[in-house]
Design a protein around this nucleic acid. Structure first.
Length: 816
RNA sequence: GCCCCCGUAGCCCAAUGGCAGAGGCAAGCCCCUUAAAAGGGCUGUGGUGUGGGUUCGAGUCCCACCGGGGGCACCA
């Protein structure tokens, strides 16, 4: 009788004692190192089905590498700062730490039961002062390098969470966390200068090709949005300084028929003619009322207002009207554009709405945009463009940049969609920003020897969001002496985005108790970068982009010797139920703990991995943990019966040849399948091996045959990756000492992989007409004559064949 | 609207351009059993969403369309 709960009760305490996966930092350790990392969890409650999947996937790989003889780093920690703890604390009149650390304990116990091969000695929590101290230390280093700065401007404000958000945390105008519609607010906030690294963030993706899912790379590329073009200076009537615009199509400069500035930019107010001032003010008010969601709608009609002033086209001296319109963004490029309606759909829509002229300057062979309303952004020959006439796009761009350069009114330029990372938050449960504001000295970093700046003791109602950070009301905490002049000063009361915490936690795992810096540089040199990262695709442009940025900065600081943190990335699918995401509303939730209680840890892990490729979603309604349990019981019986019939150390060479071949073919295939992350197929092969061993026991050479032991031992080791309890029990029943995790990965004997004969298919015109048993190393010519001589083939041949394709030893195709 | 991925048996899924089926679920049948459960075994008529194309040969490569999923969507 297979009793998974009994196996768990038996082995879990034994494993605690054995501590098989404790980290080894012995410099003499000859094993090559590997770093396997799962995205660390947020302690929102107990582990759920999604955790069950990610950690099952990660654990197979970690255990596989361990069995193969690598020194594996496979750590766990908690991303334990964040809003849910704070909201829970307000609701229940607690300190956020109470809720947080209770959940961490729950999750830690669940992880242990789930038998994930973590090195528990490296555990960390980002909400520990020993951890966030180093967030502060890093912040100050960034500040010193000009990479952390404060500026005022329009920011995204989440009215529900009562804090600002980074651009990356706004999805289609809504808060990524709580889905509330964000509003724009004018506020002074802290930023990390990620835009300084925009080029490298794009260029270094070359290192990740093949190791990261293509779609994640695409999403990052889109997010960064690098484009190349030119800056062109347009004089404005009645203004001393020209206004620069950015365009990706400088070749169409002669087609500019009007000029547009962002209505919310200072420039609009500055250049508006007195008689249009009122109109602009009204338009600005109208625009300000729009939500982001309305503003971003592509369905929206173009709106705008004439500013009563004119710009001068620098290449032909033409006078073109200046408008303000909200389809021009104040924070991209220079907040102003030259409008070329013939070759840009947005400009054309605007021109048609307001009766502005359309001039074709690229002959594309398509109908006149002025007539059709369809812009022609494609390639073509330049016309109506003075010196550019007759040129193709690329040449025209080169030429016009040259002309502008000579006159000093333009130059080649690169622009990015990426904005700086807004990192301050008006919430409590995060890392205090280690800056002291002094009236005389300005922004003064807290001296390193005074770190960490710990959070004041606040709980319950005191944490309720008020639109400013709760820390502001902790007066004793806020008021300090300026570290520079000792005068009265105030601490910065914002806390850091928790994505700061997760941008470098994987470095600290290498030596989590290190006290001389955020991480042990030598240890990171040894362990880094991460060989395999496993986690959800929801972080494609959040955590993953921020981490890449951090590593590049740390590289420039000389603290790490690599430029990309994660060499390989695997995005596991979601666990869904009945075709839909699990949710309370739908009432289709499945609880991980309940599944484990019903079927056992091993069966749940097995089911997660067997369901399909790891990146596919698993519909729990389509899979059968009961069937997984049945298989594990069957596998364990094979191991138990083999163990009862023979002793360890048998000479496998004397065993049944047929079974031995199956075993070794399985080793060969499973090894290759695991190397390519095809766990579902690898498990199918293990099931086949189990069936073969079963058959050998029942109707073959019998349980005592050494080949049966060999198969059973192989099975125990392979299953240890997926079903550690079952495998451990089987390993013991086979007469071995725990732990099976240390048994070592089996190696296929090449002599047992060769087949004496292969079935060769003989086709005539693609249809199978005969099968021949041939030697696997038969020569093409011999196989061809054998095939042509076949009696079954003869009737289909009419004289000499036109062509014979031979793919020895498996196929011959005769074309009559 | 643009880009990417995926459509194989009732279901989940396999198949270096070479016999469409490895594994599992469900279903049916058989053995074991007094019986049931447990256990062991047997059973696959879909020709790979549709239509073209390339090839000696296409589930696999190319084109178009249909269906599902995802990303981007005033970034000049």
């Amino acid at each position: 009788m297979y009793d998974p709960q009994a196996l768990q009760a038996k082995w879990l305490p034994r494993w605690e004692e054995l501590d098989t996966f404790a980290g080894v930092e012995d410099p003499e350790d000859p094993r090559p190192r590997r770093y396997m990392l799962d995205m660390f969890p947020y302690p929102s409650g107990d582990l759920h089905m999604g955790h069950g999947e990610v950690f099952a996937i990660g654990d197979v790989l970690a255990r596989y590498w361990f069995q193969k003889g690598y020194n594996v780093l496979h750590p766990i920690g908690w991303d334990s700062f964040g809003l849910p703890a704070e909201n829970a604390a307000i609701r229940r009149n607690l300190h956020p730490a109470e809720w947080t650390y209770a959940n961490i304990d729950t999750q830690a116990n669940s992880f242990k039961r789930y038998a994930v091969s973590f090195d528990w000695s490296r555990r960390l929590h980002t909400s520990d002062p020993e951890y966030y101290r180093w967030n502060q230390w890093l912040f100050i280093r960034f500040f010193e390098r000009g990479l952390a700065y404060r500026k005022g401007g329009l920011v995204n404000w989440c009215p529900v969470d009562q804090t600002v958000l980074a651009n990356e945390q706004v999805v289609a105008g809504r808060c990524e966390r709580c889905d509330a519609e964000v509003v724009r607010r004018e506020l002074t906030q802290w930023y990390f200068k990620i835009t300084d690294y925009a080029d490298r963030l794009v260029d270094d993706m070359a290192q990740l090709e093949g190791g990261w899912p293509e779609r994640v790379l695409t999403m990052q590329r889109n997010w960064i949005g690098r484009s190349t073009g030119a800056d062109v200076e347009f004089p404005i009537e009645g203004r001393d300084e020209p206004v620069t615009v950015y365009t990706t199509r400088p070749d169409t400069l002669y087609g500019a028929t009007f000029f547009v500035v962002a209505p919310d930019a200072a420039l609009a107010e500055e250049i508006v003619a007195p008689e249009q001032r009122e109109a602009l003010a009204a338009y600005r008010a109208q625009v300000a009322k729009l939500s982001d969601i309305e503003r971003l709608s592509t369905e929206k009609e173009k709106t705008g207002v004439f500013l009563g002033t004119y710009a001068i086209n620098p290449v032909n001296g033409e006078r073109i009207p200046v408008w303000a319109a909200d389809y021009v963004l104040s924070d991209y490029g220079h907040g102003a554009i030259m409008a070329v309606p013939a070759h840009d759909q947005r400009d054309l829509d605007f021109a048609r709405k307001f009766g502005l002229p359309v001039r074709v300057v690229v002959h594309t062979g398509l109908a006149d945009p002025g007539e059709t309303g369809v812009a022609t952004p494609g390639e073509g020959t330049l016309v109506n463009s003075g010196p550019l006439d007759g040129l193709a796009k690329a040449d025209a761009i080169r030429k016009i940049i040259e002309i502008l350069g000579e006159r000093g009114t333009g130059r080649a330029a690169v622009n990015f969609r990426l904005r700086d990372w807004l990192l301050s938050r008006q919430r409590f449960w995060g890392t205090p920003i280690p800056i002291i504001h002094c009236l005389d000295c300005g922004e003064v970093p807290v001296p390193d020897d005074q770190l960490p700046v710990t959070l004041p003791d606040m709980r319950g109602e005191a944490l309720a969001p008020k639109g400013i950070s709760p820390l502001a009301s902790a007066e004793e905490w806020v008021n300090v002496a300026c570290p520079k002049c000792s005068g009265p000063a105030k601490r910065d009361t914002d806390t850091m985005d928790t994505f700061v915490d997760s941008s470098w936690y994987y470095l600290r795992y290498c030596d989590p108790d290190y006290t001389d810096g955020p991480f042990n540089v030598e240890r990171v040199r040894k362990w880094g970068p991460i060989d395999q990262y496993v986690g959800g695709v929801e972080h494609a442009v959040l955590h993953l982009l921020y981490s890449r940025f951090f590593i590049k900065v740390l590289h420039d600081m000389g603290m790490v010797d690599f430029t990309e943190p994660f060499l390989r990335l695997l995005n596991q699918g979601q666990v869904i139920n009945q075709g839909k995401a699990m949710s309370k509303n739908l009432g289709n939730g499945v609880d991980l703990g309940e599944q484990i209680d019903a079927y056992g840890v091993d069966a749940v892990r097995f089911t997660m991995l067997f369901a399909g490729p790891p990146e596919d979603d698993i519909d729990w309604a389509d899979v059968s943990p009961a069937a997984s349990q049945k298989f594990l019981a069957r596998a364990l019986r094979v191991m138990v019966e083999a163990g009862a019939a023979s002793a360890p150390g048998a000479d496998f060479a004397t065993g049944d040849l047929e079974l031995r071949k199956v075993t070794h073919r399985t080793i060969d295939e499973v090894t290759r399948l695991l190397d390519s992350y095809r766990y579902n197929v690898a498990l199918a092969r293990m099931m086949e091996l189990t069936t073969a061993a079963r058959r050998a026991i029942d109707s073959g050479p019998g349980a005592a045959d050494p080949a049966v032991r060999e198969a059973a031992e192989t099975l125990a080791v392979m299953l240890s990756l997926v079903a550690p309890y079952t495998a451990e029990e089987g390993w013991e029943r086979l007469g071995h000492t725990p732990s099976v995790a240390k048994a070592g990965w089996p190696v296929a004997d090449p002599a047992l992989l060769v087949q004496e004969s292969v079935t060769c298919v003989v086709q005539v015109a693609g249809k199978v007409r005969d099968r021949l048993e041939v030697s696997p190393d038969i020569a093409d010519a011999e196989l061809e004559s054998l095939a042509l001589a076949s009696e079954k083939v003869q009737p289909y041949l009419d004289g000499a064949p036109r062509k014979v394709i031979v793919r020895a030893p498996k196929l011959v195709n005769i074309v009559p």
